[in-house]
Design a protein around this nucleic acid. Sequence first.
DNA 1: AGAATAGTGTCTGTGAGACAGTATGGT
DNA 2: ACCATACTGTCTCACAGACACTATTCT
Lengths: 226, 226
Amino acid sequence: MPLTLAQICLNGEVAPNARKRKQLTDYPRPSVAVDTAVLTVADGQLCVGLLTDPRTGNHRLPGTFLHEGETLADAVRRSLREKAGIEGVEPVQLHVFDAPDRDGRGWVLSVAHLAVVRPDALELLTAAPVPAARDLDFDHDVIVGLAVERLRADYAELPDPAGLLPEHFTMTELRGVHEAIDGNRLQPDTFRRRMLARLRETDEAQRGAVGKPATLFRRRAVHEDH
Amino acid sequence: MPLTLAQICLNGEVAPNARKRKQLTDYPRPSVAVDTAVLTVADGQLCVGLLTDPRTGNHRLPGTFLHEGETLADAVRRSLREKAGIEGVEPVQLHVFDAPDRDGRGWVLSVAHLAVVRPDALELLTAAPVPAARDLDFDHDVIVGLAVERLRADYAELPDPAGLLPEHFTMTELRGVHEAIDGNRLQPDTFRRRMLARLRETDEAQRGAVGKPATLFRRRAVHEDH
DNA sequence: AGAATAGTGTCTGTGAGACAGTATGGT
DNA sequence: ACCATACTGTCTCACAGACACTATTCT
């Protein structure tokens, strides 16, 4: 039986002050965790950083519990700093996993994240090629799937939006990163023409390699003209 | 100072049992809320359902606190059932708002959702055209923005993926919904040709209107052939 | 000179955008 | 007969895909 508009407003959480405080203290609260798929490209392959459970030998993603007064992004940064020595990432939220029984220890919500890092940042994690990262603990297989999907969408239009490459790079290096993320060969000429509009050409060229020296490019600032 | 792989595994949350339970009880836990942008199309306009705070007169989205043993989607359904008499929605997660000071009442995480409903379901909420839904409480302006962005992305490729229309509809009715969501006029012929491949033609036609009777279409099941 | 890699010219097919036309009902 | 609306033919433009060709360096 639906309520009238007046009844709705009086029964909502934001009505009188007493009711508000009641709502915040009366209900049990879940633990909130963050779990992060740390992705990188190494040796032309898309890889994810894993931890190993010493009791079971199973693999899982790095994660931690959210501390008071902390944002989710800060919790992700703290977990990666403490467990993998990784600094300076910009985590992206993917999804909240909320099945009440997903963690045998109790009621835990997990906010899945994606973090993209340079390959040398994965020293302290096991870098597993994404197709091989199967049978992870919890719902971490699904998180890896979502992270890859998101990364592919981001890399479909723009050149290296996550900054995996250094400031200057050749078109072939850029294409190599995009091929690793996409999982397929990309047509060199079509890729070049599509990306050129989004890149700024430098007056430098790559030296020391065989063949015609490749022009070095920089990523173009967002909405940079010409 | 980074840890070795062995140290990482021993210090992680999933090592010995005693440590695990400690993690779940020792830290303060946030309240978790859900807030939902209820979108619909009415009179050719994209509208969002709002509640009014009786003290301040400000508008906000319907929401509630997550109860124990409940999923986020169930919390959204409960809040919409109790506050708006809306049944049978399929909420979509958008984003977790986590600023520690976003709610003056305390530490509250809010998981923003999108729910799409038929226009007649909005009786008990104020249906505000999206451009007019400004200066909402909390970060609800941002939630509406995310919800609209998501809905537009969903409607860019597929015919009425959220099922705003009844089972049978004309191409003009379909285009009307897409125009309301997109916010722009769409070329009738181009729209028709793009959508035809995703629709199944029925052998019925609309009767009673002036002009040539329009063919009635149905949405095609996912990956339905021919 | 020859190998190797970078970069371009160009053809083809596809699909959006646009406009004008044809089809088919109601009044 | 006329109008209103549904639907289609067709031209143009832009761009992906593909292939072959040219350009420039190192050995």
